[in-house]
């Protein structure tokens, strides 16, 4: 991935082109879906032209007889999924440029697809430094792009998903799509100098207690990325190989849990906080040993334990002293 190599230039060029031609209809506010009804209708109509072919329905009833359906199968999208994604409200042609306007699409149309950095220039700049240090960049170089993980037709950023369980399901699917698929994994590993056999996920995680439970409750990147040094990025894009990943359970399983600032930074549960729990936002969807503790109950338990031990020691000491006194008196 080289998202920012030409990103600034591309962003400027894209803005100028969009303004000049009026062809690219993006959201009125950055990151937000359009609100103008006329614009929404225009985008809907424009996207409906694409969906006429590039959906399951389109594949079943192709609008033209001369279409290569085998090729089309590879480019099927779900409008509902797109509407739930980050890019909802955007016109397909914002990214899929001039080469896709007419059918048959231009032979070189794929080259006209906008790079992520054309819109996400600032983010791409920040991500790139982290990504360059990742195991994916080191092993797969340019074969690995933003879209290898982030399907722009489906992906939604964690801040907008909100619910930690849904974030986990979405984000872990990105990892296991390759790391739990021999087919996808081998397709990428051909780029390596020596072809690599996909390691079995259970075997590589045999040290982790309740691996399956962890995989459904936290993201792979909780351990496989360092803390992001960039505040605006919730997670680092420096994906770490197993030997560099965090194996310290207490990173999450402690009162100073990293979960609070990573996976649960967008969670909004206050019930646990009202009850005096530490890392209360986690309690909305998980009880985490060592993290979701109630300091008041802990103090009561420790205090009671201390008092019991001291009380018994005192009781024993008095017993011994009085027994010695009695013995001295009788002797």
């Amino acid at each position: 991935m080289r998202p920012s190599t030409k990103s600034l230039f591309a962003a400027l060029a894209f803005t100028a082109l969009a303004a000049a031609s009026g062809a690219g209809i993006a959201a009125e506010v950055k990151g937000a879906a359009p609100t103008d009804p006329a614009l929404i209708e225009k985008i809907r109509k424009s996207n409906a032209e694409c969906y006429a072919c590039h959906t399951e329905a389109g594949l079943k009833n192709p609008p033209r007889a001369d279409m290569d359906l085998a090729a089309l199968t590879k480019f099927i999208h779900d409008p509902k999924q797109f509407d739930g994604s980050n890019h909802t409200g955007m016109e397909c042609k914002v990214c899929h440029g001039q080469g896709y306007v007419a059918f048959p699409h231009a032979p070189e149309a794929k080259k006209s697809i906008s790079e992520c950095g054309e819109c996400h220039a600032t983010k791409a700049l920040r991500v790139e430094t982290q990504f360059e240090a990742s195991v994916h960049a080191k092993n797969l170089k340019d074969a690995f792009t933003c879209q290898t993980c982030h399907d722009p037709h489906v992906y939604k950023v964690a801040a907008k998903v909100g619910d930690p369980r849904k974030i986990v399901a979405q984000d872990n699917a990105m990892c296991v799509d390759c790391h739990n698929s021999d087919l996808r994994y081998s397709a990428f590993s051909t780029a390596l100098p020596t072809k690599k056999v996909r390691p079995d996920l259970y075997a590589t995680h045999d040290w982790l207690p309740n691996a399956r439970l962890h995989w459904s409750a936290v993201r792979c990147i909780e351990c496989h990325t360092p803390v992001s040094p960039v505040k605006s990025l919730a997670t680092s894009h420096e994906i770490l190989a197993k030997d560099k990943s965090d194996k310290a359970c207490v990173t999450c399983h402690s009162q100073d849990s990293a979960l609070a600032t990573r996976l649960y930074r967008y969670a909004s549960t206050n019930v646990g906080a009202d009850l005096g729990f530490a890392n209360a936002q986690v309690l909305g969807s998980a009880y985490v040993v060592g993290a979701t503790r109630n300091p008041l109950i802990d103090r009561a338990v420790i205090g009671l334990f201390g008092l019991t031990v001291l009380g018994l020691l005192g009781h024993g000491a008095v017993c011994v002293v009085l027994a010695l006194i009695r013995r001295r008196r009788t002797s």
């Binding site: 019930v271 309690l283 969807s285 334990f305 031990v309 009781h315």
Partner: peptide, 28 residues
């Protein structure tokens, strides 16, 4: 609105603490 495992965990913790307190007194 909280994870359903919380009451289970709290019961386990408090009951475990009671067993430990009992054990200390029992040994004494």
């Amino acid at each position: 609105g909280l994870d359903g495992l919380l009451p289970v965990a709290m019961l386990h913790y408090i009951a475990g603490a009671v067993v430990i307190l009992f054990m200390v007194a029992h040994i004494y």
